[in-house]
């Protein structure tokens, strides 16, 4: 009886192990930890052409050849005392201004929710 239970547990472990081997997701978490703080990661996302590409339209400190379609990203804490309002603005800018030229980064999943958190952290730090 005891033996059978032990056998089942072992087989369960084996099953879990084989399943786990097929999931590469664990790697991403490890990679995240290496990359540094949320603000640093957010900066990388904000500058990347394929991700936030904030520089396409906004001037940002340290950013090379920014566009001038939208206001420079400075003094963000006085412009957005509530960080959640800033996040909502990045998530769907059309709510505040239906004629905005800003992509709906959250609503249309240009960025994932966790990427959006990091970008918000970075922008809020400016």
């Amino acid at each position: 009886m005891v033996k059978t239970i032990r056998g089942l547990t072992l087989s369960g472990v084996a099953m879990l192990l084989t399943t786990a081997l097929m999931l590469p997701a664990i790697q991403t978490h490890a990679a995240d930890a290496v990359k540094g703080s949320n603000i640093e990661q957010g900066k990388e996302l904000a500058f990347s052409r394929k991700k936030g590409n904030c520089l396409a339209c906004h001037m940002i400190k340290d950013g090379v050849s920014p566009g001038n379609i939208a206001p420079p990203l400075v003094m963000m804490k006085s412009r957005f005392p509530d960080k959640n309002v800033l996040r909502a603005q990045i998530w769907d800018a059309s709510k505040r201004n239906p004629e905005t030229a800003m992509p709906l980064f959250g609503k249309y999943e240009v960025l994932t929710e966790s990427e959006l958190d990091k970008v918000t952290d970075f922008i809020y730090s400016l």
Binding site: G7, S11, L17
Partner: peptide, 19 residues
């Protein structure tokens, strides 16, 4: 043999789940 059986069992169940 027991161990082998366990591994095989584990693998088959994974395959079944996978299917």
């Amino acid at each position: 043999i027991k161990l082998l059986l366990i591994v095989v069992l584990g693998f088959t169940s994974t395959v079944i789940l996978a299917a």
